[in-house]
């Protein structure tokens, strides 16, 4: 199914879901969960947590769908946002001492790297993204891996669009430098 027709379908389902049709919400989730899952697993680094969080997104979405307000963004972006918050909460639950408001902004390279242990590819390009400061990594993942627009990414991360653009610019720049550095080392593996 093409992206645009899928989003149209989601719109129709959303109208029903906001009126309390739980099955319509179920369908929405079925259409979206693979993308959500992809984002979450890239953030948390293992299937078990990613599955847990994805189900949590489902449940929280179900609770909140009644009060969903259409602000011109896709329902998928809305789910991404719930997912993003759930991921932040997840890390918060792990490390309660961190300043909660600033959690997403704190570059926690070691933490993400540790969580990525059971992944099959911690190398090359992807290996470098997870080493970026979290905020930059989030933006790059949403923008280019999950294919979200700047506006949507801003909504999901609750940031201004200019901030998203700036983080994207910094992220790419950072990534380029890191890749250049790793290319300079003969042992580094290039992305496949």
């Amino acid at each position: 199914m093409s992206e645009s027709s899928e989003s149209e379908q989601l719109k129709i389902l959303l109208a029903r879901a906001t009126e309390g049709d739980r099955r319509a919400y179920g369908r929405i989730f079925r259409l979206c969960y693979k993308d959500i899952y992809d984002y979450v697993i890239r953030r948390v680094g293992n299937h078990t947590d990613a599955e847990d969080i994805t189900m949590q997104v489902f449940a929280q979405g179900l609770k909140a769908i009644g009060s969903y307000e259409d602000r011109g963004h896709s329902v998928k972006a809305w789910l991404y946002r719930i997912a993003h918050n759930a991921v932040v909460d997840h890390f918060r639950g792990q490390r309660p001492s961190v300043d909660l408001d600033g959690a997403a902004e704190i570059p926690d390279e070691i933490d993400i790297e540790r969580r990525a242990i059971d992944r099959e590819e911690i190398r090359g390009l992807y290996g470098q993204i997870v080493r970026l400061p979290t905020a930059q990594a989030e933006v790059l993942m949403l923008r280019f891996i999950e294919d979200r627009s700047v506006a949507e990414t801003a909504i999901i991360l609750e940031k201004k669009e200019v901030t998203v653009r700036a983080l994207q610019f910094k992220g790419i720049k950072n990534l380029r430098q890191r890749l250049e550095a790793s290319e300079a080392r003969p042992t580094a593996q290039l992305p496949e």
Partner: peptide
């Protein structure tokens, strides 16, 4: 992209058919 595992896909499918069940499952 990362595909969800088969068991999880089934879980999502079942949960979304009966959303209250999925909700209970997610806690």
């Amino acid at each position: 992209r990362y595909g969800p595992r088969a068991v999880f896909r089934m879980k999502v499918f079942a949960s979304t058919l009966v959303p209250s069940l999925g909700s209970a499952l997610a806690g």
